[in-house]
Computed example of a mutant assay.
Amino acid sequence: MTETSGGPWRFLSSLSVVVPLLWLHGIYQISRERMPADQLANSGEKTWVFLTAAVGLVILTLPGIVLPGSELGRTVGKMLGAPVALAYFASCWLAAAALLTAESKKPNWSDPRLFGVFLLMVYAFAGAWILRSRIQAIASRNPTPDA
């Protein structure tokens, strides 16, 4: 594959991360809607983290599509690569924390399950199957009236 043909592949590879971000955001929103009202008030809305990760991934791929092989693409990648990766992993952590809080009705940041659920969020292809019943159980409950 030549350097000039990498643009569409870069875009498709960014979609392979943006689509799981939509899944993560859905888990986050459904879990927040089912959290107890006092936990919901204390946690604050953090949808901007998911949006930052998604927009950042798209921005990272644009220079490679529009100007393949350019110095601009490498510069943008160096400047935005780490912040976008951080936003992606923060999105995974927020979704995992919201899921556990909705399940247990109280946040417990020292819960050892949090890291396991976080890893299942990172590896969404396996996490979707493993977490499916837990997510469905939370989604089937009535939303919190204050949500």
Rank of each mutant, 00 (worst) to 15 (best):
L21Y: 03
L22I: 13
L22W: 12
W23R: 09
W23K: 04
W23H: 11
W23Q: 12
W23T: 14
L24S: 01
L24V: 00
H25N: 07
H25K: 13
H25D: 10
H25W: 15
G26V: 01
G26H: 06
G26T: 07
I27S: 00
Y28E: 08
Y28F: 12
Q29P: 00
Q29C: 10
Q29R: 13
Q29V: 12
Q29F: 07
I30H: 10
I30V: 13
I30Q: 08
S31Q: 00
S31D: 00
S31E: 00
S31K: 00
S31H: 00
S31M: 00
R32F: 08
R32T: 09
R32G: 11
E33Y: 08
E33L: 13
E33C: 03
E33S: 07
R34S: 00
R34Y: 05
R34M: 01
M35S: 02
M35K: 06
P36W: 11
P36L: 15
P36K: 15
P36M: 11
A37N: 01
D38T: 14
D38Y: 11
D38H: 15
Q39I: 13
Q39W: 12
Q39T: 12
L40K: 03
L40D: 05
L40R: 07
L40T: 05
L40E: 05
A41C: 01
A41P: 02
A41T: 06
N42D: 14
N42M: 14
N42G: 12
N42L: 15
N42K: 15
S43C: 04
S43M: 09
S43I: 15
G44A: 04
G44N: 04
E45P: 13
E45A: 15
E45Y: 15
E45Q: 15
E45V: 15
E45M: 14
K46V: 01
K46R: 11
K46M: 02
K46P: 00
K46T: 03
W48H: 14
W48P: 10
W48S: 15
V49W: 10
V49T: 15
V49A: 14
V49C: 08
F50W: 03
F50R: 01
L51H: 09
T52M: 07
T52W: 06
T52C: 09
A53H: 13
A53I: 08
A53P: 13
A54E: 07
A54F: 06
A54D: 02
V55R: 02
G56I: 03
G56F: 01
G56P: 02
G56E: 02
G56H: 00
L57Q: 13
L57W: 09
L57H: 07
V58D: 05
V58Q: 05
